[in-house]
Design a protein around this nucleic acid. Structure first.
Lengths: 262, 262
DNA sequence: GAGTGGATTTCGCAT
DNA sequence: ATGCGAAGTCCACTC
């Protein structure tokens, strides 16, 4: 018989001492904790806050972050970012957890009444998270809103076939100079710069006037700045998210109804 | 024997169908749900995102908000603000929950693998939450940083005893005019304005020069603007939080170590 | 360490 | 609904 790994260990309505022991062990082993309990919370730090007793969900994560959630609202009523140090104990017959942050000198103290559920978790989560606004989306956004590049910029063409391939965006600046834009969705490296340079050289052979090359990306790799300057290529930071927002504003991405779920 | 209310109903390692039934009931009754499960998440809306399978904590609240938390980080990896409509079902042998928001047309879909824990909660939380930087703190902040009121403002005295009571702050502006400041921590109403007016009248009787009255508060009540203008009292918005930040910067509120917990 | 800018920011309040 | 500003914003990055 195969024994399945159980990442969840549950205590229902634990006694004060059982809860304390379980919490202390979990904290020392950097496990994730979920508590459903009646509790009061105090925060002292950048501001002060006090939360009177009530039934809430409390999460303490492996990295030392803390969340106190009421039964409504997206955002936690009290919280602590990662990196907390914890103090636990029983005083005046009540279980207390204090989470202290050092760098911003602030703390929350949770004073527990009845604990309904205490779950100790050993979660394994290696799943990649990707947020995507495609390079194509970024291109659309610039076409729709050329001032994203700079004031006075105008798009002449996009996905324009040039000798080595396709130029992302081809335009003209305020002073009438030609502009060639290369877009990267993620960190732009040496490859992206050299690709843009190839287009620039190809166009320079044909049109003998001044051409500017602009690399558009959310960020650029370390150490490629010298290459940029030596090739006189400019860098314009632009995030996929910002592009998405613009597209939505311009209603270019039309979201349809609830199609395609089941 | 007294039967205690149990706001928590727990299923450990539920079957697909048991979980579906439980979730559907909970959603229709607007109860709060906690799930610990292996799941994948897709988001479509303001941006698109995809989260590959992994073990996470999922919270669906009474108000239709959704949180997907990984075992690290303060912020949820995926979420949905309150007011979602839910679709649930089993397709391709997997339990799915889809949360759709109407006004911002966005949705997240959670595709479940193994569910380790399903807790249905009926939380009662009436506890008041208060975030406080006291009126005294605001006063301290203005004394420490008079430019909060306006450039060139100087404090002459605070908590100064005047005929009807104590003036919060008494000062002089850039042009040498007297200034009387009334501070309110919360919304300033008619009472606050009339109180300030009383001080102003009392001082006008003594000093026969021009006096400005400034009401300092994070906001003012509806419909009192006419009263302000008719009494020629000025209004300076200032939040307790901002005051707190200034006090901390000026190190007037000195946070000490970990004293006084146990 | 402080300062800057983005975020599926969220959350108010005013228009 | 839209727009503007604050937030215990958080977070990543630069200086």
């Amino acid at each position: 018989m195969k024994i399945e790994r159980s990442p969840v260990s549950i205590l229902e309505n634990p006694s004060l001492n059982a809860a304390l022991t379980s919490i202390q062990t979990a904290l020392s082993e950097h496990k994730t904790l979920i508590l459903v309990a009646n509790c009061a919370v105090e925060y002292k730090g950048r501001a002060n806050s006090k939360l009177e007793p009530g039934e809430r969900i409390l999460i303490i994560k492996e990295d030392g972050s803390v969340l106190v959630h009421r039964p409504t609202d997206y955002s936690p009523v009290n919280w602590q970012p990662p990196g907390c140090l914890f103090q636990t104990g029983i005083s005046e017959g009540k279980l207390r957890i204090r989470a202290v942050r050092k760098k911003v000198r602030e703390s929350i103290t949770i004073i527990f009444g009845k604990i309904y559920l205490l779950a100790v978790l050993s979660l394994v989560d290696k799943g990649a998270f990707s947020l995507y606004a495609s390079e194509e989306d970024m291109e659309k956004a610039i076409v729709a809103e050329p001032s994203l590049i700079e004031s006075g910029f105008q798009v002449i063409a996009f996905e324009k076939p040039i000798e080595p391939g396709f130029v992302d965006i081809y335009g003209i600046d305020e002073k009438g100079h030609l502009v060639v834009i290369e877009i990267k969705r993620g960190t732009a490296g040496k490859t992206a710069i050299l690709q843009l340079e190839k287009y620039l050289e190809a166009i320079r052979k044909v049109a003998k006037r001044e051409i500017r090359g602009i690399l558009v990306a959310p960020n650029i790799a370390k150490g490629v700045h010298p290459l940029l300057t030596s090739l006189k290529i400019e860098y314009k930071p632009l995030s996929p998210q910002e592009c998405y927002n613009i597209l939505q504003k311009q209603q270019i991405l039309r979201q349809k109804g609830l199609e395609g779920f089941f």
